[in-house]
Amino acid sequence: MEYSEKVMDHFMHPRNVGEIEDASGVGTVGNAKCGDIMKVYLKIEDGIIQDAKFKTFGCGAAVATSSMATELIKGRTIEEALKLTNKAVMEALDGLPKVKVHCSVLAEEALRAALWDYAKTNNIKIEGLEPPKEDDDLDHHDLFDEE
């Protein structure tokens, strides 16, 4: 198993690590059982993501996808952020080993969970946003065969 240079760069020098004290939305996904937990903080003003931070428990790919995903949505509108897919995160990292694809899925879900939290707190409806899956035991690993 080998990581791309971009993955290693985002792992060794992760962007946006940390917390946002007065976050507009916070989302946590994953569980310790499968070895990855991602927590994403968003600061949203006027429909624009002004800042994004994360905390991640997980492997190199989990940290790198968190770093890249937060990087990709900073300065974007909510609508643009909603369009971010795990594939886009992977592509931006020059790919992931097959067994690590689930990390990129988790990163996408963490963003959506934070957006959902923002929508719920502010009592607004974001078109196209589904509530995060309640069942934390959902095994993202079954997705790893997906190309």
């Binding site: 792992f11 060794m12 499968c34 070895g35 997980g58 492997c59 190199g60 940290v63």
Partner: peptide, 20 residues
């Protein structure tokens, strides 16, 4: 795995019981 990657960066080669 995160620990191993950072150790490797320092030239230290070890292993882990982590799934990853």
């Amino acid at each position: 795995e995160s620990i191993l990657l950072m150790l490797d960066f320092k030239g230290i080669e070890a292993s882990s019981g982590s799934a990853c």
